[in-house]
Structures are given as C-alpha cells and as structure tokens.
C-alpha cells in the first residue's frame, strides 16, 4: 500500500442513501481471481444501458464528474455484502475517498485496508456537499481534516491505527505477523 498524506480533488455526487455493494460491483463480476480491472464495471447496472452503451444521465458519466477522486454519497454507503471487490472497483475507477454521513461497517474496514478513505461528516456539511457537486476538497490524513472552500474545515473520525497505516503505507498483515509469539502463547493457553 502506498503512503497517503492527503487527497485533493473535485467531488462527484451520488445523492442516494443505502448504496449497497451489489450496486458498487454486481455479483456477476466477482467471478475473478484477481483484484485488478474491476473499475470498468463499477456501478455497472447504473452506468451502462441494457445495450451496453453508457447511460448519459448517470452522474459518473457526466463530463463534470470526470477525474473526480472524491465521491460524495448518501447515508449508509457500502451496505450489504463483505466483497472487498467494492473498494477495489472504486479505486480502480479512480476514486480515492467517499464522503457520507454514515458508512457500513464491513465496507469501511475493507476500504481502510486498501487506502480508500471513508470520511464521515455531519448532516450540515454533507447537505452542502450534496448541493454543490464538483467543489474542490482536501482530505488530510494526519490531522483528519476535511477542508472545504472558503476556509471551512471539519474533522472526520479516523481510528488512530488505521490513520497510522494509511499515512505510512503499513501492511496490517506485517503487524499481525510480528505478534506470532503472542499468538502461539494464546494457542497453548487456550488449548486450541
């Protein structure tokens, strides 16, 4: 994982609540044994018409959304299945962060493991972001600060260990492997 200190980008806005992982990447695209290439089918059933052509009215197909790295979505983003293909698809497409008032647990965990930043803000800030698509934001990892236009700054929650791993590009598996001694001691104590 590459270290990330800040994400600076325009936003694209998908104002729906409860966007589930089946929408982010439909199950038929999970018949893969690698993690690359999923971006092509990100939001596949919304992005493409039944004839395979792009649905021009879908927000991510509009010219102003091109190149945006920060997705602003409705409440409870990423609910549903545990598929890590969801953050993989978002990253492969070019997104690096999602902002919502609430992000589903497993999706949040999976995102943090891949350096995809889940950002929760209050309803006031969120409402403003929904109404102002395309604004330029800076998400700072060290200070957990989201900087909006006109000097407006809000802090977002980011658990300290995840912040450390993202800032330093630390692989959490390495951290666990360093505790092999503790794990062996637990196994003999618990008799497993």
């Amino acid at each position: 994982m590459e270290p990330i200190t800040e994400i600076r980008s325009r936003t694209a806005v998908l104002p729906l609540d409860d966007v589930d992982t089946d929408q982010i990447i439909p199950a038929r695209f999970l018949r893969t044994t690698v993690r690359e290439g999923l971006g092509e089918n990100l939001f596949a059933d919304w992005r493409y018409n039944s004839d395979g052509e792009k649905n021009a009215s879908f927000v991510l197909n509009r010219p102003e959304a091109q190149g945006a790295q920060i997705l602003v979505a409705g409440r409870n983003f990423g609910c549903g299945s545990s598929r890590e293909h969801a953050p993989w698809a978002l990253l492969d497409f070019g997104f690096r962060a999602v902002i919502s008032t609430e992000i589903a647990d497993i999706f949040r965990n999976n995102s943090l493991k891949n350096g995809f930043l889940p950002v929760v803000v209050d309803a006031g800030i969120h409402g403003w972001l929904l109404e102002n698509p395309g604004v330029e934001l800076t998400l700072d990892v060290e200070s957990r600060a989201a900087s909006l236009p006109a000097g407006r700054v809000t802090e977002y929650p980011l658990e300290s260990f995840s912040r450390y791993c993202i800032l330093n590009g630390v692989d959490q598996l390495g951290f666990l492997l360093n505790h092999a001694g503790d794990i062996s001691r637990f196994e003999s104590r618990a008799g497993v």
């Binding site: 890590e84 497993i106 999976n110 493991k113 959490q172 666990l176 492997l177």
Partner: peptide, 11 residues
C-alpha cells in the same frame, strides 16, 4: 473482506 481472509489464513 478478502484482505482479512489473508490475515486469518496467515495468523
């Protein structure tokens, strides 16, 4: 998720 599947397989 799958990264955590790897964590559990390995540790």
């Amino acid at each position: 998720g799958t990264t955590e599947v790897a964590h559990v397989l390995a540790t």
